[in-house]
């Protein structure tokens, strides 16, 4: 694998460029559809690119109470770790850049690193608003990990029960779409698990109704209140890349299909078809889990976030897991 280092380097750069561009476009798309749902025109699709260019040209203020090295390191670490997650996920039907280097359990833990970087940056800001925001981010992170773990374990369990080797690896999931392994009960269970994962996504991205760590109207931006200039630009880019990562995870777990293979296309047209198909899929996921939810709901209080994830979604996830298990037992009998 070490001999593949040049390939890993090229793959990482390509994934970084792809995820930043698509992430910013998704953010632009989100703003447009949210505006249209609120009977507004909204900004142009490329507005996030303009925002990033503007932020990079602005002063990068480091507050006098801050720990400067940690305050500046946090956004760099957040973006780097968000890009790294995508190296473990299949993108547009292509195998992950680090295929064979990690599995879903690793992806689940890697998803916490950008959030931890944000927490470190919040605490390093030396601002009361940011400290409260960082505290809330930690609590939110603990909350959504539980239902996320249930979804991942349910899918891996189903693959293991079907006799598939290395069930936690994305290559196994990509080669064996989970819908094809279950009966009617299992389909209902998987639909519940899909909904649970779609509700985990806005919390991963700190979006309404789970944006309690930022809470503009209450904490004036909370965890990001002291960030400006290029540091804020990097956190915005992280947001875009994480949107792509979470949508890619949903697609990899539940829709690992190749449109080119279905249509019988080969060669370069197949790659183009699959890339476009992938972009459409992640746009639909981002619309359902981010735009639609944030327009139709108000922010939860931090204690409500815990109740939603640890009680309602955990029960829903366990019900989904139970249905998938029952389906397997009924199928065997």
């Amino acid at each position: 694998m070490i001999g593949n280092l040049p390939m890993i380097l090229v793959g990482a750069v390509l994934i970084a460029v792809f995820s930043i561009i698509i992430g910013l476009l998704l953010m632009g798309f989100d703003r447009i559809v949210a505006a249209r749902m609120q009977a507004r025109i909204g900004p142009p699709l490329t507005q996030p690119f303009t925002d990033i260019r503007k932020l990079l040209a602005k002063e990068n203020v480091v507050p006098e109470n801050a720990i400067p090295w940690l305050f500046n390191l946090a956004p760099v670490l957040a973006l780097a770790s968000a890009i790294t997650i995508l190296l473990y996920l299949p993108i547009a039907g292509f195998a992950p850049v680090l295929s064979g280097g990690g599995d879903l359990i690793l992806v689940m833990y890697l998803l916490t690193i950008p959030a931890l970087a944000l927490v470190a940056g919040g605490f390093a800001s030396g601002s009361p608003y940011a400290t409260v925001g960082a505290q809330r981010e930690m609590v939110t992170m603990i909350a959504y990990e539980f239902p996320l773990a249930i979804v991942i374990i349910a899918i891996a369990w189903k693959l293991a029960a079907a006799g598939i080797a290395l069930p936690f690896t994305l290559a196994s999931i990509q080669a064996n779409p989970v819908w094809s392994l279950v009966g009617p009960l299992g389909v209902i269970g998987l639909l519940i698990l899909l909904i649970v994962l779609l509700i985990v996504t806005p919390a991963e991205l700190s979006r309404v109704p789970f944006d309690t760590p930022e809470a503009e109207t209450e904490l004036a931006g909370g965890i990001l209140v002291e960030y400006s200039g290029k540091n804020l630009a990097l956190f915005s880019l992280t947001q875009g890349v994480k949107t792509v990562a979470m949508a890619s995870l949903v697609v990899a777990l539940f829709f690992p299909y190749s449109l080119a293979a279905i249509l019988g296309i080969a060669g370069i047209p197949a790659a183009v078809t699959d890339i476009l198909f992938f972009i459409v899929l992640i746009t639909i996921v981002a619309f359902l889990s981010v735009s639609l939810v944030r327009v139709s709901m108000a922010r939860f209080r931090i204690n409500q976030v815990i109740s939603v994830y640890w009680i309602y979604l955990a029960i829903a996830g366990l019900a989904g897991l139970l249905l998938v298990m029952t389906d397997q037992i009924v199928g065997v009998i």
């Binding site: 694998m1 070490i2 280092l5 890993i8 380097l9 990482a12 750069v13 970084a16 500046n72 956004p75 760099v76 670490l77 973006l79 780097a80 770790s81 890009i83 790294t84 190296l87 680090l98 064979g100 280097g101 990690g102 599995d103 879903l104 359990i105 690793l106 891996a156 293991a160 290395l166 069930p167 936690f168 690896t169 290029k230 540091n231 630009a233 990097l234 880019l237």
Partner: peptide, 24 residues
């Protein structure tokens, strides 16, 4: 059931840090 290679992850995060630092 699954695999992970810590050395590959370290290589990957270093590449990510360089890309992010260049942007920063």
């Amino acid at each position: 059931f699954g695999i992970w290679d810590p050395v590959l992850w370290i290589i990957a995060i270093i590449i990510g840090l360089v890309i992010a630092w260049l942007l920063w």
